[in-house]
Design a binder for these strands. Structure first.
Lengths: 131, 131, 131, 131
DNA sequence: TTTT
DNA sequence: TTTT
């Protein structure tokens, strides 16, 4: 009845953009989210959390984000069952994002993904940059 | 770097309480969380989310909660790899709760789990009842 | 850039429903939110937080909620300056809710506010009942 | 009963650090949080939200943060009544933070506040840096 | 499969 | 101005 997730972390890879047969854009990536505290061996554990994004926000993320970028993601936790390529039944738990904020800037300016066409994205297509 | 999950839902079964070899209590249960909107077939989909609770809060939940009870859970999303009983590698995604609030009362008063010994539970052992 | 508030508490009074000159509905009420821990004198302090709701969700809340009802509110913190009736400049800090979930049922069935016309409310008009 | 606020924004001024008569550190600052959407005049409104931080985290923030710095703050909304310097009764609404994450780096290296003594801060003294 |  |  209430389901809210807020994460800050870095993309482990470039977003993948796909389209449903009905033409709806879906972007997926994983977020590396460091735990606040160090473990017994003095390191910070990291949680790798799958993010799913729909529609225009999916395309904006695919166009502007890349591996290593720092983002804040808001969304809801979703569970889903599927059969993997070996026919094994698996449960997916992922965050369906309704908002993604960019918290840093691209490392090099030669990237094909940059901020040229940053624009307002409507209500559930909520994006922002950190200045 | 920031990882916060807030859920309201109902327990799909009674909590399971176990202890680590070093004697720390761990409770687990799943929460059924209805999506806010109906799907194409007019029904509300439900996400089943695994919850993990440690220490004194684990024991309080095991003592007072049961299948069907309505709770608000606050915690963080955690990912974990393990091999299932068939030796298949799986990824667990669960919410490690640091706060659980009881939002309703037990259905029948003959339950062994009731509110007799409700008490304050310390900082990360945060529990409350709705009145 | 990110602004999220999630509260569970009880209405301190019936919602007030007003309309802007352009005809948009606005409901306001205050939420009594108990702190999780008791203070030095053994009591729980309570925070009284002003809630503002717009459009259809405002009307749904005005129709179905009343003093004492338990709700979960999601929204954003908003600040606003105004002059009070004595001409003193004041700063209002309130939560603009985009989602309200009803977590209990009306105490008596003779109330004019009930669940007769409960219905789905669109994306930013997000309402639900606890069963 | 549940009270959670998560904000990302920039400090409008350097933190002020004070001590209670019993010697407990308290830091205060305001956070400028841009709204996600532009208003009728095409600008983004900004909410100015007062933040209060206690104990060791207060000192860490006072030592390392300054005007303009970007942070993620987690905490709870608190209300409080007081009389201002003119004897006018006022209501303060502020966020008591239990976690502050630094999301950028100091603008110039000549600042007296830097990252020399960054360290782990215990459970409710939760601080982190973005790399 | 994993980010700085 | 304050809820159970």
């Amino acid at each position: 009845m209430l389901n809210r997730v807020i994460l800050i972390g870095r993309l482990t890879r470039d977003p993948e953009l796909r389209y449903t047969t009905s033409g709806i854009a879906v972007a997926t990536f994983a977020l590396a989210v460091e735990r606040p505290f160090t473990n017994q061996s003095g390191e910070r554990d990291v949680d790798f959390i799958d993010i799913v994004i729909w529609r225009k926000l999916a395309e904006t993320c695919a166009n502007h984000l890349g591996k290593g970028r720092l983002v804040a993601v808001e969304g809801r936790l979703q569970t889903r069952s599927y059969d993997d390529s070996n026919g094994i039944r698996r449960k997916a738990v992922e965050v369906v994002a309704d908002s993604v904020r960019f918290l840093d800037w691209p490392k090099n300016t030669s990237s094909s993904n940059d901020y040229d066409d940053q624009e307002f994205n409507g209500f559930d297509d909520d994006i922002d940059v950190p200045f």
